[in-house]
């Protein structure tokens, strides 16, 4: 699996991690297009939908993401899509005004968390333990 970690690394210092070149299907145009399509679906069907419909979460008891936070999440998603990185399994509000991108594979989970204060960070858990965590910035 090419990790979302790679996406985070790209956004912090433009490093290319080994797994970016080691993945069997990472170099094929078809796989690259599929990833971009997955990102675009999440952007269109979730993030833009939330931004366009200010009443989307009106009946929910949690605080929905602000327009600024959604806009920031779209910027991150656009960046990762354009870099051909794997799309997350899900994009959800974080219950407190933020947005969460999540990939889960077995006992490993990777999260890009856009917080309500418009900061962003990456963290990876193995089981229930954090094994990696750092702040993110747009390239």
């Amino acid at each position: 699996m090419q990790k979302m970690l790679d996406a985070a690394a790209l956004s912090t210092d433009n490093k290319t991690s080994p797994s970016q070149t080691a993945g069997a299907d990472t170099a094929t145009p078809l796989a690259d297009q599929r990833r971009k399509d997955e990102w675009q679906r999440l952007i269109d069907n979730k993030l833009i939908e939330w931004a366009a419909n200010s009443d989307y979460f009106d009946n929910e008891e949690f605080e929905p993401p602000t327009r600024k936070v959604i806009h920031l999440a779209i910027q991150f998603a656009n960046q990762y899509r354009d870099n051909g990185l794997p799309a997350p399994d899900r994009v959800v509000p974080d219950a407190d005004g933020g947005v969460v991108f999540e990939i889960r594979r077995g006992r490993s989970s990777e999260t890009i968390h856009i917080w309500d204060d418009e900061t962003a960070e990456y963290y990876r858990l193995l089981g229930t333990k954090i094994v990696d965590r750092y702040p993110l910035k747009l390239a």
């Binding site: 979460f57 929910e60 959800v92 974080d94 219950a95 969460v100």
Partner: peptide, 22 residues
């Protein structure tokens, strides 16, 4: 866990389901 939130799809639960709100 609200269905509309997307925090649960019936087989998997996402961390925001347990995230403290303001």
């Amino acid at each position: 866990i609200s269905v509309l939130s997307g925090w649960c799809d019936g087989s998997q639960v996402s961390p925001p389901a347990f995230h403290p709100q303001k």
